[in-house]
C-alpha cells in the first residue's frame, strides 16, 4: 500500500529525517511513536506531501508520489488526514465540513453528499450536531467531525497526526473509540501518537523513531515487552 525508500527531509540545516525505509500493508494499523523532535510528524506529513521530501521515494498504491509528474492532488484525495488541531472549516457547519470536498472535488451531488455526511456523522456519534458550527463543538467532537470529514472522501489510507494530543483528557477516549472502530473496518492507518495503551491494543505494528531514524519496527507485543534498542527502552520507561 505505502512504500517508503530512504526518505530524507531537512528544514534548512536541520536534518529531521535521516533516511527512512519502511512499508505499510493494506489494512495494517501502524503506530508511529518516539520522543518529540524525533521526526514522526514530519514523516507522516511527507506521506501526502504536506512536506516535500528532500530526497527519497514514496509509493502509494504502486504510484510514486515523489515523482514530479504525479498529480499530488489526486493522491491526496485518496489519503485522509487528521490533524492534532482538527482544522475544521470554521465558517461551515459540521455537515458542510463533510460534504464540501466530496461535492467540489469528487463531483458528488448535494443529496448524495448530504446522505453520506449524515451517515458518517452518525458513525462518529454526532448525528445531532450536523448543523452546528465548529465553535459550538467540544474538542473531542471537533476531532470526530474531522475524522468523518476525511472519511467522506472514501480514502484508501488514513493518516493521524497526534489526533488526541490537543484534547482534554476526558475527551481522548471518545476519539480513540472512533479510531478503534475504524481500525476494525480494515482501514489502513498510520497514527502518530503518544497513547501507548492505544498503540499496544490497536496497532499491528509499532514504528519507533528517534533522531530522524527508524530505530525499531516490531509488533506491539514485542516492542512494549521487549524493546531491542536502548533508546526505545529509555523512552518506554519515561512513558509507562
Amino acid at each position: 500500500m505505502i512504500n517508503v525508500e530512504d526518505l530524507h527531509k531537512s528544514f534548512g540545516k536541520l536534518e529531521v529525517l535521516k533516511g527512512i525505509t519502511t512499508s505499510i500493508e493494506e489494512g495494517e494499523v501502524v503506530a508511529i511513536i518516539g520522543p518529540s523532535g524525533s521526526g514522526k510528524s514530519t514523516f507522516l506529513r511527507c506521506l501526502n506531501l504536506l512536506e516535500i521530501p528532500t530526497s527519497g521515494k514514496i509509493w502509494i498504491n504502486n504510484q510514486e508520489v515523489t515523482d514530479k509528474k504525479t498529480n499530488i492532488m489526486k493522491i491526496r484525495q485518496d489519503v485522509g488526514m487528521v490533524f492534532q488541531h482538527f482544522h475544521l472549516f470554521p465558517h461551515k457547519t459540521a455537515l458542510e465540513n463533510l460534504t464540501y470536498a466530496p461535492m467540489k472535488v469528487r463531483g458528488m451531488s448535494k443529496q448524495e453528499a448530504d446522505k453520506l455526511g449524515q451517515e458518517l456523522l452518525e458513525k462518529v456519534g454526532l448525528a445531532n450536531k450536523a448543523s452546528e458550527y465548529p465553535t459550538r463543538l467540544s474538542g473531542g467532537q471537533k476531532q470526530r467531525v474531522a475524522i468523518a470529514r476525511a472519511l467522506a472522501m472514501n480514502p484508501e489510507v488514513m493518516l493521524f497526526d497526534e489526533p488526541t494530543s490537543a484534547l482534554d483528557p476526558e475527551m481522548v477516549k471518545e476519539v480513540l473509540e472512533v479510531m478503534k472502530s475504524l481500525a476494525h473496518t480494515g482501514m489502513t492507518m498510520a497514527i502518530v501518537t503518544h497513547e501507548m495503551g492505544f498503540a499496544r491494543e490497536v496497532a499491528d505494528r509499532v514504528l519507533f523513531l528517534d533522531g530522524g531514524v527508524l530505530v525499531e519496527d516490531a509488533p506491539p507485543a514485542e516492542f512494549f515487552t521487549n524493546p531491542k534498542s536502548g533508546r526505545a527502552k529509555e523512552f518506554l520507561e519515561k512513558m509507562l
Binding site: N48, R76, Q77, H87, L88, Y100, A101, K104, R149, A150
Partner: peptide
Amino acid sequence: GQREAAMALGIP
C-alpha cells in the same frame, strides 16, 4: 492549518 486541511483533502 486551514490551508493544510484543504490540501490534505485534495482541494485545488
